[in-house]
Amino acid sequence: MNQRQTVLVVDDEKQNRTLLAELLKDDCRVALAGNGNQALDRAHELQPDLILLDVMMPDMNGYQVIQALKNDDTTRQIPVIFISALDSPADEERGLDLGAVDYITKPFHPSIVRKRVRNHLQSVHHRHLLENLAMIDSLTEIANRRRYDEALEHEWRRGARNGSPLSLAIIDVDHFKAYNDRLGHAEGDHVLRQIARALSAFVRRPGDLIARYGGEEFVLLLPETDAQAAAEIGEEIRASIENLHLAHPNSPVSNYITISLGGTTLIPNGGQVAPLFFQIADDALYAAKADGRNRAFWRQRTD
């Protein structure tokens, strides 16, 4: 079991919280909440892997808590196990109907609770692995286009809320078809992996993202980065790839593998990503190629 997984125990009775914490401490990290409002706050803060939730609590009962969790995009996917003294089939059915993954009645058997929690945490671990694999490019082991599309939507909305700049770079390997024609696709794949590794060094903050967009094309997303800073990063990236000194015998640009880069910066507006955002960056990339390649061009929206 992954020791870094977190279980949030929610119960208004201190004795129950202590008992469950002691029971689970060897399998996972345990966080505690004594009422419904604390539970919602801690769920947002910690994003636990599993929540053990009492039903009968003052002010906000467990049914109300799970409804609030399921109505919030940031907590909807967190699995909830009810642990309750309400032991009728109707109570259990209600809890499961509201989205709980399990229902344990009090008084509970410690060994059974522990095994059920272990099983659910294992399921969560497997689900996260599958979700991560679906977002990773199998060749380069960096984010794929699907992950980029999701990150772009998220960062666009965040930038629109905060009025903060969002920068995008499109990166293309110069004359890559000629490289594959001369040295073969196996060597070409090796080059793409090395470029991806070099580009990953420029992912310096949690919101930054480098992804393989397709073929020999990559994209770099830089939230809260203005045009000047992003353009400087773009030039650093161009130089870093050339400085890898990966031989390219068929390139008219250089003896080594080089890239062309086009980028743009704007402050997002509205809830949907503007198609113009990618288009301006793509136009800058085209201009970099037209100027001789091995260039990094940055353009800003002028309207």
Rank of each mutant, 00 (worst) to 15 (best):
H44A: 15
F278A: 12
M1C: 05
A186V: 14
H175W: 14
E224G: 01
A284C: 09
M60I: 15
A227I: 01
K70R: 15
D172W: 09
L152R: 08
N180P: 01
N71A: 15
F202V: 00
S88Q: 06
H126E: 15
N37W: 15
N294E: 02
S111L: 13
A143Q: 03
V55R: 06
P107W: 06
G214W: 04
H128M: 13
E217K: 00
L86I: 06
Q67K: 14
F218M: 04
S138Y: 02
V9C: 05
A178G: 11
R145H: 13
K106V: 05
E93F: 07
L19N: 06
V55Y: 05
S88I: 01
Y103Q: 00
M1H: 10
A134I: 01
P275S: 03
T6P: 01
L53M: 08
E155G: 02
G234T: 00
D72P: 01
N2W: 05
A247W: 12
D49Y: 04
R157K: 15
P165N: 10
D49R: 08
S167N: 04
R76S: 10
P275Q: 07
D73W: 03
L222I: 02
H109V: 15
E242F: 14
A160W: 03
Q5I: 06
M57N: 07
I210H: 05
D72V: 01
N119L: 09
K115S: 14
A198D: 02
A230L: 00
I259Q: 02
T302E: 11
D174C: 01
L86W: 07
R114L: 11
E155I: 00
G95T: 03
D72A: 07
Y63Q: 03
V113Q: 10
V30H: 04
I83E: 07
F277V: 06
